[in-house]
Design a binder for these strands. Structure first.
Lengths: 198, 198
DNA sequence: TGTACATCAGTGAACGCGCGTTCACTGATGTAC
DNA sequence: TGTACATCAGTGAACGCGCGTTCACTGATGTAC
């Protein structure tokens, strides 16, 4: 593995485990097993390291749109929600860290407009998946794909926050929680007492 | 206003507007109009200032439980959700900042166990309100108060995050968004095509 | 009423430290002839 | 096959700076007699 990649891995690890405030050039170099000086052969400055980590090490989310039309809608939504929780647990510490410095936040935001990522990407994906199922007639036409995406992503996001707050690296009982969330959504045309009528 | 309060206000302002990383003792003192030395007459150290701001300046959320039984359930839930969005927009930058330093996070977490606050307080309140309405027969007995609270709070939390990310100080169209969220929840026994059947 | 002292809010200037960054350098590996 | 030079990954040691913190001090206000 190239020195650059090793440094990025080390930086990502330090940022995740100790927070961005402790992710000093000394600490990153030590973790990577290189001298501090080498960091500056591969990156312009410290902020460039942070930005590169955010760009290249905060993984994306698998697009669930391709699930549309396959399997059971309810199961798919539960799976998607569980995936969201895992995704947010992994990315929350870093995303949150960015709020520690408004200048960093601004840099991240403007660096994001060029590519399709950003914090709204998961919401858009889930909304698109739900919209596809509506088109296929597997979710009631009256269902609100935007609201459903906002609540599933939102709940997953907050559950991930709480897990991180507790120092955990996964949402406890993720599947069971996801199950209850999905069961409480209006996604069927006739919902007579049963929360799973499709 | 006492110097202590002035300093806390200044610290809260700096933390909110520039992020915790820029909330240096110099910056806080300048903003407060006092010397840095005075900070140390009122606080043990910088972390004590941060902690005091979190304890005394990050306001709580009005408990919605007392709404139970009054007005319309749907309107109440929308109002609660709008309140949640406002609350989270105000507190997110600071809560997120804490993740920039794991040591700070640990200190905050352990300082929290003594009092009733913490990041789960809003969830508990909303759940309690929904449970009350279920007991009163105004929300169907099959509804899941936990899941409903998780989704309303979660969505509000994430919408607040997105607003902060965009540099805004309020969630755009908060009322309309809240309306759609509530309309997509399973809260009525018979939900035949109408999302507002109670 | 005056005087001597105590208390208190507040400060300017300095302190050591760890930070991000740079510089001159090394030693190994290619490469032209 | 040597040899002279170029390139390249990597480093030790130093740099200036801004940070959090402390110290000795001031000047105003209370207070006992």
């Amino acid at each position: 593995m190239s020195a650059r990649e090793t440094i990025l891995d080390a930086a990502a690890r330090v940022m995740r485990e100790k927070g961005i405030a402790r992710a000093t050039t000394k600490e990153i170099a030590r973790e990577a097993g290189y001298s501090e000086a080498l960091l500056y052969k591969h990156f312009a400055d410290k902020q460039d390291i942070y930005m590169s980590v955010l760009r290249e090490r905060v993984g994306g989310l698998a697009d669930p749109t391709e699930l549309a039309g396959t399997g059971e809608v309810h199961e798919n939504l539960v799976d998607v929600t569980v995936g969201l929780m895992a995704f947010y647990v992994a990315s929350f510490p870093m995303s949150a860290s960015i709020f520690s410095d408004v200048e960093l936040l601004v840099a991240w935001r403007s660096g994001l407009t060029e590519k399709g990522g950003g914090p709204r990407a998961p919401l858009r994906m889930v909304e698109r998946y739900v919209a596809s199922e509506i088109e296929l007639g597997r979710i009631d036409a009256a269902a609100d794909s935007y609201a459903i995406a906002a609540m599933l992503c939102g709940a997953a996001f907050q559950q991930a926050f709480l897990a991180c707050f507790d120092g955990l690296d996964a949402v406890p009982d993720a599947a069971a929680v996801a199950e209850r969330l999905v069961a409480s959504l209006v996604i069927a045309g006739a919902n007579n007492g049963s929360n799973r009528s499709f």
